[in-house]
Write a protein that binds this DNA or RNA. Structure first.
Lengths: 357, 357
DNA sequence: CTGAAAGCGCTTACAG
DNA sequence: CTGAAAGCGCTTACAG
């Protein structure tokens, strides 16, 4: 809008006007404006107790007025540590990954930390070197490890060696408490067992996840605990091992349904496999739940997309992620946490019913 | 293992031995070792042409020997820009999100850039302020926007104002070519139409995604293009609008299947809704594909988990993500890209069949 | 083609 | 309780 004889814009014009608002304030600006040294501003930023109340309030007012936020990069450089949290994972289930990310983000919200995602492959020859490079290059503040990387002792050892904070998410206590968020898969699986028993089933089978996942053992253990309460136990042939995949569910279902006598209820280590068993049952001409009860684990979307929708055990993945992030960055909560939100809960839908005939 | 009269370890011991290997080399170490100034090392790092070949080689040798990698934080501080790429998204489908992340990571691999994830909510009153804060605080190198945030002009405007690089992923050219990766939903939907027509169907219906997604319109447009090739067109009542969710698929299926005459084929804007229609058909006592052909779009996992598995259109989400990341950070590829990998392709499974006799 | 000085925006010792 | 100096590991002018 300037006419042709308007003087050229000053640097100040350029910085404060045209290009989207004034330049971001720095610690020096705040110090000058508040009439203190930058070190004192730094103390306020870092919540040091050694600042007189009056000084602190004055500085905080200036900070608020200018919308000042310290530069995480500069802070990180001086601290020798970034404000980045890594999520290092190899869980193949998209819904698990997304829920976990959302939970971590819940926990980091407002803290100034950001989440950097890092898928990995435990079978890769450069697996550990990759993680080490990632953590050291970025000087990560800390990392969160969901299963199954969380179960890899080599990773925990590496992280300890290079002095990187970490939280392992797992179904059993694998490490010192300050490094763990423990799920309660056992409890959830026991609920599934009670449900199946209450429906009157006695010929019961279990499809386990792969042996390399601790959750496979926990879910089996919990299921056996639940059965034991009713005096029941799984025989050798009642247990088959899948791979937590849909296809493996089909295969295991085929094997189990070919047995004589046929089981009337099958508990699966996760929903994927339960959906596979559903497929298998259909091929065998069985109607669920009339001829066969199927129960899954996780309550991922697939549980509701199949027909009939699956009775399953819901795991609070997002909530667990949030707890992991809060623990990692040292957030203390005022209100005691509602533990019911962090425990698995049985969701009864239409794939489970009374024992046939 | 030290005996009680071993002298206390020196600082050097601590740094080089015990705590996981020697300290990371800095640009100063490399400069000293190579007998040059740090500025010259900096030139090599940044691939400046103004370094004599012999000098460069010497420096590169030292860098390789020490496994030196420049500190992204220090570099970012000096550059006034980080080496972080943001993915800002609101797509609710976990599989889409994960595939997109994997694609972006593919494109960033080896570049030194890291991926920071940032879900958002277009309906939030702080939507734009959140994005602005995120980008400015982290001094992001650039961001990738998948649908539907990619379709929000306010976001593009904001990013332009604050001078942040960005790539928008969408089904239509919404911006200058350097800011766009365009999918080919139209082409994919046309393939679906041809498939349905070839099976002999004439009473055909379409379930659209929500009007707020450009892909809804593109998929509809492409489908109509494909029908037009056979001289067919959708009538008013043949089109119903869903919300890209399973539940909306059930509702739209109910509405469509209640019509007389009933459609013999339904093309759905995505797999979720197609799975919903499958559910609806089952309730109505119809057998798919004998009584009804259903075709989806995306080829997400749900397409294979339902029965019968869905005929659908596969979109190369991961490949698109990779292209977006490469474009953002300016990677040039030697070999010309195989475009067939970036186009949608029809996947024929068991939910489509000849028109009922 | 190469380098010495100053600076990016913070924090850590060290004084007072 | 507060501050001046030095430094984190790089890059940008500016010289030569």
């Amino acid at each position: 809008m300037s006419s042709s004889n308007t003087p050229p814009s000053t640097p100040e014009d350029l910085e404060n006007g045209v290009e989207g608002g004034r330049k971001r304030a720095t610690i020096n600006d705040i110090a000058r404006l508040a009439g203190v040294s930058k070190k004192t501003v730094s103390r306020v930023i870092n919540q040091s107790p050694f600042v007189r109340d009056e000084t602190r309030e004055r500085i905080e007012a200036v900070i608020a007025e200018w919308g000042y936020a310290p530069d995480p990069q500069a802070r990180g450089l001086a601290f020798r540590r970034s404000f980045l949290i890594g999520m290092i994972y190899d869980n193949p289930n998209p819904q698990y990954v997304v829920n976990m990310q959302l939970g971590l983000l819940d926990g980091l919200r407002g803290s100034g930390f950001e989440l950097v995602v890092h898928p990995c492959d435990r079978a890769s020859p450069t697996f550990l070197a990759d993680i080490r490079g990632f953590v050291e290059r970025q000087k990560l503040y800390g990392v969160v490890l969901p299963p199954s990387v969380s179960e890899d002792e080599r990773v925990a050892k590496l992280l300890n060696e290079i002095g990187c904070e970490y939280i392992r998410i797992a179904s059993v206590e694998l490490d010192m408490p300050e490094h763990m968020i423990v799920g309660h898969d056992r409890m959830g699986a026991a609920q599934a067992a009670r449900h199946i028993v209450e429906l009157g089933h006695r010929r019961i089978a279990f499809i386990s996840g792969p042996g390399s996942f601790r959750s496979s053992h926990e879910r089996r253990g919990g299921f056996e605990d639940g059965l034991a309460e009713a005096g029941l136990k799984l025989a050798e042939g009642d247990i088959v091992q899948g791979a937590y995949t849909f296809e493996s569910g089909v295969a295991c279902g085929d094997a189990l349904l070919a047995r004589t006598p046929r089981p009337t209820a099958i508990f699966c280590g996760n929903d994927e496999m339960a959906a596979g068993v559903l497929q298998s049952a259909r091929k065998a001409g069985l109607v669920v739940p009339r001829d066969l009860t199927i129960v899954g684990f996780d309550d991922f979307q697939i549980a509701q997309a199949v027909w009939p929708p699956l009775t399953t055990v819901r795991t609070p993945t997002r909530e667990i992620g949030r707890m992991a992030a809060e623990k990692l960055i040292g957030v203390e909560r005022d209100e005691p946490r509602d533990m019911t939100k962090t425990e698995p809960s049985l969701v009864v839908r239409e794939s489970s019913g009374p024992v046939p005939g």
